[in-house]
Amino acid sequence: MNEVIGLVIIGIGVAFNLLGCIGLVRLPDVYNRLQASTKCVTLGTWSILLGTFLICGFTAIGMKAILCGVLIAFASPTAAHALARGAHKAGIKLWERSVCDKYEEDGK
């Protein structure tokens, strides 16, 4: 029973990974791409690791999958934050149909 639930959760995670990568290709500028790909790929990888834990149970593989999930939960948003800040400081403009840019108005 656990194996079936695990396979379904892994399938959902892989689908979210694919959606995130489509967003990476389709959206217009760096910040939008960062949003779509970070959110969808993080949740997709969590789902894959949760499915691994459900299939393998309390073995070495399952516990390492849980620890890897915790690590990704800390690492992925921090990396996105650093990339967005670096891109803005490197002078990359927002998309031309953007509404407002308070960060540039404040002269940072």
Partner: peptide
Amino acid sequence: VLHPGLLISPGIV
């Protein structure tokens, strides 16, 4: 992402 008209209006607040 999947909507054909790209329903976005981004900005930094």
